[in-house]
Design a protein around this nucleic acid. Structure first.
Lengths: 240, 240
DNA sequence: GCCGATTTGTCCGTATGTATC
DNA sequence: CGATACATACGGACAAATCGG
């Protein structure tokens, strides 16, 4: 539950934008009007608006108003974006998810791995690989490497369900920042063995580091996606 | 030239983070210390810090401090991210860029195109296709569709150089928001004819809409990248 | 072209809440 | 418990862009 006022306002405005209370291309009520409506200071309104601008819902125009640039999208593809677990994404897209753990081991970080992942050498790591299936088809190969010290008690059984659920609810650790990079790679022998790639010879790869609320990196991930089930959305705002 | 104080502070801190004045994993000076250093209010400092947090440079920890999570990266790949023209990206990556215009026409938006691009039906559009080369290899196929009314005087000669440069400097129009989506598609016949794909049968596709400072969408783009020359970077911050 | 009303952009000072140590 | 540090919120001031008369 959000307790901050600007978060309430943000969610309320977001919902109204998605409902097309104000249609695409129109102007929002002025900030001062919103101040009266929500009974708060202009700073608080501006904070909510700036979050919506970052997410591509609106755009402020100096001296003029705030333009709606949100357009309702067709939900055909399996989209990712933001920090979201496989489970959450599957549920949002109304798919039946399944996970198969194909590797679960504990290893120390050697030099090559330290360089690639960003963990310190010698750190004890959980190394696991999982295949994600949707409607019976194997579509995503996930490689997760966790700092063992920060994810105590992790088992293959938990990995079969939802690791993020375990981390956040059972361990009480909060995931905050995630740095990622997206590339396209040729399918390896393992990819072809684990996934139903058909005659594709490439896949979409999301490689990332995840940081907890102490600002410590505790996870390195590689998510290897079937091309047909990959769609990443993003909004950028130009800085001068 | 940024004239806003928070932008100066933002750039100054960013440079120091990239110089590793404060190493990865350490804490920044406290906000109050920075207030003294930059002689400004805490609001102004916090604004600069929040921009850096969004870009994955730092992460605030309540009651503790601000952790540096920036790591210098190896510049091996051709990376994209943010709003940046091909020219700018090429220069940043120290490559010799070249552009070949293979189509330049004016068409009205029919129903199918209107639905795909988001332009209104019947709008007059510039439709162009360009091949981007680096060190003599054809690596990117760009399809740009512009609202003709908002980009008057566009010619194939300008398209050969930099359209963004023309739009921003000559027309004085500012690009502000860009909404994009990344997918992996099978290479079409055209892709194979235009690009040096080798034996790849897929490519990375960035599809996007660009909005000017009036909040009007004036461009629809599709950038089709050779897999080896595609790397998209992103930072996500988890919201509750 | 100028002026004034409206609207967003930047910045400040202050107060209070909450997490960490 | 107190000191420190970040988080939220308010209110006010002035600048800058837009628009209509």
């Amino acid at each position: 539950m959000p307790k901050a006022k600007y978060e309430d306002i943000y969610h309320n405005l977001k919902e109204k934008l998605e409902n097309e209370t104000w249609p695409y291309g129109s102007l929002l009520p002025s900030e001062n009007t919103l101040v009266s409506v929500y009974e708060c200071s202009r700073n608080t309104i501006r904070r909510a608006l700036s979050s919506l601008a970052e997410e591509g819902y609106i755009q402020s125009i100096h001296g003029k108003g705030v333009r709606v640039i949100y357009q309702p999208l067709e939900r055909t593809a399996f989209t990712v974006g933001g920090i979201e677990s496989f489970q959450e994404t599957a549920r949002r897209n109304h798919f039946q998810p399944a996970t198969k753990v194909i590797q679960f081991s504990v290893v120390p970080a050697d030099e090559a791995m330290a360089k690639e992942t960003g963990f310190a050498m010698g750190e004890e790591l959980f190394f696991l690989r999982r295949v994600r299936c949707i409607d019976g088809k194997a579509l995503i190969l996930d490689i997760n490497i966790f700092l063992k010290a920060l994810v105590p008690g992790l088992t293959p059984e938990i990995a079969e369900k939802s690791i993020y659920e375990y981390i956040e609810n059972k361990l009480g650790m909060q995931i905050v920042t995630s740095k990622r990079k997206i590339t396209v790679e040729r399918a390896s022998k393992t990819d072809r063995e684990c996934l139903d790639l058909g005659d594709y010879d490439c896949l979409a790869v999301i490689t990332g580091q995840t940081f907890n609320s102490d600002g410590i990196m505790f996870e390195y991930t590689q998510s290897r996606h079937h091309p047909d089930y990959f769609c990443f959305q993003d909004t950028a705002i130009r800085k001068r």
